[in-house]
């Protein structure tokens, strides 16, 4: 029978796919951005499904909040009012064929390489989110993160410097 979480997954997947398509085909940039935020929240829900509550929090707050707002900013600052989605049929068709090539091949690849031991990967005790385990997970993820945090910090620094350099208006 179809369990609740299976049902939730399918609904969520459809939500992600359609909002993802919406990112592509929305008429205006602002609509596209909104659609992107929907996609991000859908992905966050996927994280929730596989017991990764910590990433769910991060995804919603950093991605859905911070980055999306940044992108909204970019759209506002740069787009003209007449910037609508334009559709070049032949170009789109060629691109679609190329993507389909990848999609088909990857599908074949995945279907042959996914481990044969198939099982329900959703393993929270009785589907319940325990508060204690939630915090344990956060702590343990931080243990792993500690290894990689300096690199992230460096990356941010570089990005910050680069963006500042680019954004500063040249003296004319």
């Amino acid at each position: 029978m179809v369990e609740f979480f299976d049902f939730f997954f399918v609904i969520n997947a459809l939500f992600i796919v359609f909002s993802g398509l919406g990112v592509l085909f929305a008429k205006r940039v602002m609509q596209s951005a909104l659609s992107l935020i929907f996609t991000l929240v859908g992905v966050a829900n996927v994280f929730l499904l596989v017991n990764s509550e910590y990433l769910w929090v991060i995804q919603v707050s950093v991605y859905g909040g911070g980055i999306a707002v940044l992108l909204l900013f970019a759209g506002r600052l740069t787009s003209n009012e007449e910037d609508h989605f334009s559709f070049d049929r032949s170009d789109f068709l060629i691109s679609f064929l190329f993507v389909l090539l990848i999609l088909a091949n990857l599908f074949v690849f995945i279907s042959k390489s996914i481990p044969s031991q198939r099982g329900n990967i959703y393993t929270t005790d009785n589907g319940q989110l325990l508060l204690r385990q939630f915090f344990t997970n956060i702590w343990q993820a931080n243990q792993g993160l500690g290894v990689i945090l300096p690199f992230i910090a460096l990356m941010f620094l570089a990005a910050l410097l680069a963006s500042v350099k680019l954004a500063i208006k040249e003296d004319e």
Partner: peptide, 11 residues
């Protein structure tokens, strides 16, 4: 993308 697709196909 075409190149990646062809590579995957060959693979």
């Amino acid at each position: 993308i075409l190149g990646i697709g062809m590579l995957l196909l060959v693979f």
